[in-house]
Design a protein around this nucleic acid. Sequence first.
DNA 1: TCATTTGATCTACTTTGCTATATCATGTAG
DNA 2: CTACATGATATAGCAAAGTAGATCAAATGA
Lengths: 194, 194
Amino acid sequence: MSYVTEELAARLKAAREAKGLSQRELSALAGVPQSHISKIENNAVDLRVSSLSSIAHALDLELMLVPRKALPAVQSITRSVASAPVINAETQRELNRIRKTVDALASRASGANIENLQRRIREITQIQSQIDPEILQKIRRTIEAIESSGSNEAVNRAVENIRSLRNQLAHRAASHEKPRPPRPAYRLEEDQDG
Amino acid sequence: MSYVTEELAARLKAAREAKGLSQRELSALAGVPQSHISKIENNAVDLRVSSLSSIAHALDLELMLVPRKALPAVQSITRSVASAPVINAETQRELNRIRKTVDALASRASGANIENLQRRIREITQIQSQIDPEILQKIRRTIEAIESSGSNEAVNRAVENIRSLRNQLAHRAASHEKPRPPRPAYRLEEDQDG
DNA sequence: TCATTTGATCTACTTTGCTATATCATGTAG
DNA sequence: CTACATGATATAGCAAAGTAGATCAAATGA
């Protein structure tokens, strides 16, 4: 295929892997057959805008037409945002296991606290910084314990557990950051804290 | 069609008109039939990435996947670049006439000074600010005069003429600008002056 | 060792983008 | 009024995207 689609394919694949999704999972999210996603990532098709956009959307990416003049600035920004993809592969896998466990749990038992649990997990998944896999493992054990007990208490305990971890992560991420860029003249996202 | 393609279609059409190109002209540049461009702009097709990219390229646009987080910042930048599209329609048309006249001239007679002339015209076309149509009209008359005389002198006179106009425009554009944004922390384009 | 997951590949079929070409109504210039 | 440029449409045909579904080797997990 062409050079443009080659870059696109690479970016899609990278984004998917960064999110720790399998082709089949992405397939479900984007509504596109796994076989087709495979072809797309291997740059074997000249895909349509609708496909590209639905896949990109599932990966929290947005399709844009940016003026050539603005390219350097835009690239600089997207680079700064896309940085810190340096997440341990093992950590990534552990996060996926957790997510799946929770999803499985949610499919059987529902409730406000379970949704809470899911939300917390999602938060952590998005933090994308170095996390001690051991801690994650403990979290997972806790969640898995819920499946047998099925008690509300267990769920709430897990939620608290995760909430604490999230705070640890946020703190660690802040201290790990570079000594701050000279002056962040543009804002990367609207305030959207809950 | 979908919402995404709708936005794209609108942006493509806007970009084309901002450049003062007809669908047929763009068709030649992008290597896509005029009929197809029409359908695309009317959001009647779910076009392929290759088509989108070739058309975008012809319009000095680049296809990009932007992280959702970076969207506001990127949009802000592209907006600031794409601003000043407020060009008089009459002026636009006059600019097109000039460009065509020069191109026609170039197709018959070639030479260093004619290329110079073309370059100057291109410069002016890109300035995209309010220009007095009367001045442009004079320029065009000058260029048209070349067609009959065919003399080198006439070409050089036109080039000087246009060079002077370009400076006037640059000056006027500078004084028309807002009192400068606080601090341009990002650079919009590499230095590429010749 | 055995089961599951993953990504790649294949088949068969449908849909649709894309091309080439032409026509047409509507402006707009000369 | 005449001629030309513009954008929208139409026809016909080919190529390829897209779908559903299955298979398979390799990696991974239990």
